[in-house]
Deep mutational scan, measured.
Amino acid sequence: TETAWISLVTALHLVLGLSAVLGLLLLRWQF
């Protein structure tokens, strides 16, 4: 169904966004 796909895509986007923010924070901490 479409709702399942939409929720799955939004979850993936949230995970990608969180990982990107965490990566930037880690880079700032290291340097």
Rank of each mutant, 00 (worst) to 15 (best):
E2Q: 09
R28D: 14
L16Y: 02
V9W: 04
W5P: 13
T10Q: 15
L24H: 10
W5F: 05
A20H: 14
A20M: 12
I6P: 14
S7E: 09
R28C: 10
T3C: 06
A11W: 10
S19A: 05
A20Q: 05
V15Y: 02
H13E: 07
T3A: 06
S19V: 12
E2T: 07
S19D: 00
I6T: 09
L16W: 06
Q30Y: 04
L16H: 01
L18D: 05
W5T: 10
S19W: 12
W5D: 15
L27W: 01
A11T: 10
L22A: 12
L25Q: 03
T3R: 13
H13C: 03
Q30L: 06
L8C: 05
L12Q: 04
V15A: 00
H13T: 14
V21A: 10
R28M: 04
V21D: 04
L25D: 07
G23T: 11
E2S: 15
V21Q: 10
H13R: 05
L24A: 14
S19M: 15
F31S: 00
I6F: 03
V15P: 14
I6G: 11
A4R: 15
G23F: 03
V9A: 12
W5I: 13
E2V: 06
F31V: 00
S19C: 02
L8K: 08
S7R: 14
S19E: 08
W5K: 09
L8V: 05
V9C: 14
L27H: 05
T3N: 03
E2N: 12
T10P: 04
L8H: 12
I6M: 07
L12Y: 14
Q30H: 01
A4S: 12
R28Q: 13
L18I: 01
S19F: 13
E2A: 04
E2K: 10
L16E: 05
T10N: 02
L22H: 10
R28K: 01
W5L: 13
T3G: 07
L16R: 04
H13P: 15
A11Y: 10
G23W: 12
L25M: 03
G17L: 04
L27Q: 08
G17S: 03
H13W: 12
Q30T: 02
V15Q: 07
A20D: 01
L22T: 14
L16M: 01
W29N: 00
V15E: 01
T10R: 09
G23N: 03
T10F: 09
L26Y: 15
H13S: 09
G23Y: 12
L26F: 13
A4H: 13
L22E: 07
L14M: 01
S19N: 00
A4E: 03
A20F: 07
L12N: 10
L8S: 06
V9K: 07
L24G: 12
W29T: 00
L26P: 10
A20Y: 05
G23I: 08
L27E: 03
I6A: 04
L25V: 13
H13I: 15
L12A: 14
L14R: 06
L22Y: 06
A20R: 13
L12C: 14
A4L: 14
L24N: 13
A20P: 11
V21R: 12
L14G: 12
A11L: 08
W5A: 08
L12D: 13
A11E: 06
L22I: 09
V21F: 04
L12F: 05
L22Q: 00
L12V: 06
T3P: 04
L18F: 03
L14S: 09
W29P: 01
V9R: 11
W29E: 01
G17P: 15
A4V: 06
L14Y: 05
L14H: 02
A4N: 13
H13K: 07
L25K: 00
G23R: 04
H13A: 09
F31L: 00
V9L: 06
L25H: 03
T10K: 05
L26M: 02
S19R: 05
F31C: 00
F31Y: 00
T1P: 00
S7G: 12
G23L: 06
I6D: 07
V21H: 11
V9D: 06
V15D: 02
V21L: 04
L12P: 09
A4D: 09
R28S: 07
A4I: 09
L27V: 06
L26K: 14
I6E: 06
L25G: 14
V15I: 10
L22G: 13
I6L: 10
L22K: 02
L26V: 10
S7L: 01
Q30K: 02
L24M: 07
L12I: 05
L22D: 11
L24W: 15
V21S: 09
A4K: 15
A20V: 01
W29C: 01
L14K: 03
L14C: 15
H13F: 14
S7P: 11
R28Y: 06
A4C: 08
L26N: 08
G23D: 05
L18Q: 10
L14T: 08
W5Q: 13
L26Q: 08
W29M: 00
G17M: 10
V9S: 12
L8M: 02
W5R: 09
S19H: 04
V15K: 02
L27A: 11
T1A: 00
V15R: 03
L25A: 13
A4G: 02
V15H: 10
L8E: 06
L8W: 08
V21E: 10
L27G: 07
L24R: 03
W29F: 01
L27S: 12
T3Y: 08
S7C: 00
L12R: 05
T1S: 00
H13Q: 02
E2P: 13
L27I: 08
V21G: 04
R28V: 11
L12H: 13
V15M: 01
V15T: 02
L26S: 12
S7V: 01
L14A: 09
L26I: 14
S7F: 01
L16S: 00
A11P: 12
H13N: 05
V9N: 15
T3D: 08
L8D: 15
L25R: 03
W5M: 03
L27D: 12
A20E: 06
V9Y: 11
Q30E: 09
G17C: 02
A11C: 12
T10D: 08
R28A: 15
Q30G: 15
I6S: 02
S19L: 10
I6Y: 09
W29S: 00
L18S: 13
L18H: 03
R28E: 02
T10S: 02
A11S: 07
L12E: 01
G17K: 09
W5V: 14
